[in-house]
Amino acid sequence: MRAATETKSERISASAEAQPRIRISRAGMRYDAAQVFRDIDLDIGNREVVAIIGPSGCGKTTLLRCIDGLLPLTSGELRLEGEPVRGPREGVAMVFQHFGLFPWKTVAQNVAYGLKLAGRGADAIAAKVAECIELVGLAGFEHYYPWQISGGMQQRCGLARALAVEPRVLLMDEPFGAVDAQTREILQFELLKIWEMRPTTMVFVTHSIEEAVLMGDRIVVLKGRPSTVHEVVEVDLPRPRERRTLTLPRFAQLREHVWSTLMAEALRAEYEVRK
């Protein structure tokens, strides 16, 4: 079904067609004595949305940073479009939970940041910035500073900054974790709409089960100490996903399934005492 949405505008060679956008093999991460995760195998296809979910401390954000090249794996291998990841790469952009906007830059200047670093010309940057600001619904707020706008608007800005570099892989690190519940819902559906307009490979880290089901084509459940892939849930909900999706019986089924998978772990984590 996914193949049907592929178009020839996709700039990949015939040999690359066969390989996944991201290939994670036997990935492990250890900080000093603590093994965070181990033996993670995961292939992520072109234009596939993979949600990664797991209890606090399972290393889902760490894994995302490894995919971005911000952190090196301590074992295993990570390939992006066939090439090993050794640092942040062109074509990959990240949206942060903490927004990560520069407070001394305006909305427009923040959105332009990645383009400037990529060495684009002033005219190209101006056009792209205007387009992306429009896309995320920030038109009219170009010259505001982050401290002048709400958390939801700040994350719209963070999203525009990521989209501006036209990434082939979009990494979302609990992007709506720091905004209130209503704003979160609004942003979720806007993100889905934007994704329909310009689908990319997306890895979405969240600890909201609903969000994982709503966003993902697949949900990767991380569990255990050290954590590893416990289950990969195929989300066979139709796209485009909209508010209506939340009312489908299949949505409730999948949510319950993921919840029961995580519940025991969540309870254990809640009552855990640090030694």
């Binding site: 942040p88 952009a93 942060f96 903490h98 990645g114």
Partner: peptide, 16 residues
Amino acid sequence: AEFLEVARAFRARPLG
């Protein structure tokens, strides 16, 4: 640290 992380993620060079 978050500012430095963002800069690294967007592949800023040391002088930048």
